[in-house]
Every structure is written in C-alpha cells, then in structure tokens.
Design a protein around this nucleic acid. Structure first.
Length: 314
DNA sequence: CGATTTTGACCTGCGC
DNA sequence: GCGCAGGTCAAAATCG
C-alpha cells in the first residue's frame, strides 16, 4: 500500500542511482525491490536525500566486458540476502535493524575493560592498551553493518558526498596496482565508514563502499529549492541517518553503479578484486534487455538520469 | 595549532 | 597451525 507511489518517489529522488541500479533488475530479480523501491533505498541507508546532484556531464560509459559470471551470481546471492532482510513495509527501515547491531560496536567497548589484568610496567601498560584494542574486536565477533558499493566514473578517488571524512588507513589491494583507502565520518558518534578504491580493470572507475549509517545530517548541505521538494519525500518519514552520497561532482563525469551487498559474507572482501564490480557492472549492463539497450544507446545521458522503467512508460 | 593524511605495525578472519 | 589479505590503529608528518 502506498508502495507504488513511493516507488515513483524513490525513482524520482535518485535519478542517478536508480538509473544505474535499475539494470540490476535483470540480474537480481529486482521485482521485489521495485515493489518497494523505497525499501531498497533504505537498504542503501537513504533516509533523506538532498539532491545536490549536479551531474553536468553524465555520459554513458562502455566498459570492457568481463565474463565473470560467477561473480555475478555471487553478487546476486548477496543481494538476495539483503532483500530477505527487508520487510515489505517501506517505512520500516530494515537497515536500521542491521545498524542497531552496529551500535554494539560502541557498547562492546566496555567489555574490553574486563580484559585488563593487573599490570605494572609501562610496557605492559602499552601491551594492555593493545590488548584492549584486540578485545574490542574479538568480543564483538565482527558484526558488519550493511554495506553497499557503487562504481563511479571519476578522475578523483575521493568523491564529494556531502559528508566529511577522515582517512584512517590505506592498504594495497591484492591484484590491483591501486591502493584502497579507508575513511571514517568525522562526526563524533557517527561510525560510518567508507572504502575507496579504483578498479584495476578500468582505472577510471572508482569503487566506493559505504558501511553503516550516518547519525547526523550532512554537514555540507546546501538546501536548494530543488532539494526541498525531494526532502519532503523522505525527510518527515525517516530518521536522521541519511548517508547516501550526494554527489556534487562538478568537473568529473561519473557513472554510478549501486551494488548492494550484505554485511555478511560480503564477496567484495574475499574476492578482493574490483573487477568483480566491473564485471557485475558490465554484466548488468549487458543483461539489460536488448530493446532497452538500443534505447540506451540513443539516450546516452538520459539513460543515466531516468530510470528505464520510467522511460518505458513514456 | 588543530585537523587531516600518511604509513608502518598490528590484529583478525579465512583458506589451505 | 601457518600464511595471506583485509582492516584498524596511532605516531609522525603535513596542511590550512
């Protein structure tokens, strides 16, 4: 009930995302998502969307095809897992239930104090602190928050998404010449993280993975007249936890691929290759129904902005 | 001078 | 159990 309208809402609110998400329908049986597209957006952590979206130069990107079907199926599996967590009710945020687990992350800190055995020397003190760090992690059994990744065609690694991030690490990625950067939201008590890495199959593609939900509004949030209209769609209903990136790429053409991944068994980490994304990306593109493909071809930019099902209606 | 980035070390989880 | 890869920490360096 009311799902239908919200479907439209979701579509209109996320022109960019939807345009790229939508092709998943062919891969992931998106019918469920489509029925409650808002749910999907919630899955992404979208609570309130202020479209700073200024994507002046969106263009279709043809990526090299990789026939990594396995990846695709894995991604599909992961995706369906996420879907399964989703209640049918659009307003109930399944993601919040998942993220509530993440709150344990903070709470578990108390547990590590128990770990402290009597220590005297300074060295032991230091060791103790390290042990505490360790305990902090071991006790929580590494419960991961829902994550979602998307690809962005961009020249810059760190995309401006309206939030302030502090880089806390960087690691070389196996099978990739490009390092992966780890960012954390600078807001206190907001433990949203994101990882940014470049696809080594296509260096022009940046893979960004978000984890967690923001517990605060975007610090960089110019409320344009346009945005208020969109905000009405979400703002009143949803709690302040918006964290879908609000891309404000002014100088870089980009293309997004929203790829939802569950917190558990996230294939991304174990397969460890950005090519998975590229593969998934190309797959989902390829798997678009042929008729649409021809259409996309013609509509280049439009295709990225308008969900295909909307286009069909026209 | 405070905030952020860099970077090496350390820890954890997982596959073999 | 071991090794590897991912993820995180924190001191030092850098930036604004």
């Amino acid at each position: 009930m009311g799902v239908k309208s919200e479907d439209v809402v979701g579509a209109s609110c996320f022109p960019c995302y939807n345009s790229n998400v939508y092709p998943f329908s062919s891969v992931f049986d998106f019918s469920e998502v489509e029925k409650s597209s808002l749910g999907f957006m919630e899955l992404l952590g979208v609570q309130e969307y202020t479209p700073l979206l200024e994507l002046p130069q969106l263009s279709t990107v043809s990526l090299p095809l990789h026939s990594t079907v396995k990846v695709e199926s894995e991604a599909g599996k992961e995706f369906s897992e996420v879907l399964n967590q989703q209640p049918a009710t659009p307003n109930s945020s399944s993601i919040s239930s998942a993220s509530s687990e993440a709150v344990n992350d903070e709470q578990n800190k108390t547990l590590d104090q128990v770990e402290g055995e009597e220590d005297d020397d300074e060295e032991e003190e230091q060791q103790k602190t390290k042990k505490q760090l360790k305990a902090k992690k071991t006790n929580q059994k590494r419960q991961r928050e829902p994550r979602f990744a998307f690809m962005t065609k961009s020249e810059v690694d760190h995309l401006e998404d309206g939030y302030r991030w502090r880089k806390y690490g960087q690691k070389a990625v196996k099978n990739s010449p490009f390092p992966r950067s780890y960012y954390r939201c600078t807001s206190v008590s907001c433990n949203v993280k994101k990882r940014v890495e470049r696809s080594f199959t296509d260096p022009s593609i940046v893979v960004t993975t978000y984890e967690g939900q923001h517990t605060h509004p975007s610090p960089v949030m110019p409320r344009s007249g346009v945005s208020t209209g969109y905000a009405n769609n979400f703002g009143s209903v949803l709690p302040p936890g918006n964290y879908l990136p609000q891309f404000q790429q002014h100088h870089h053409q980009q293309q997004l691929l929203v790829n939802t991944l569950s917190s558990l068994g996230f294939p991304y980490s174990d397969s460890s290759s950005p090519k998975n994304y590229t593969a998934a990306f190309t797959q989902e593109r390829r798997l678009c129904n042929p008729g649409t493909n021809a259409f996309l071809r013609d509509h280049g930019l439009l295709q990225d902005v308008v969900p295909s099902h909307m286009l069909k209606e026209e």
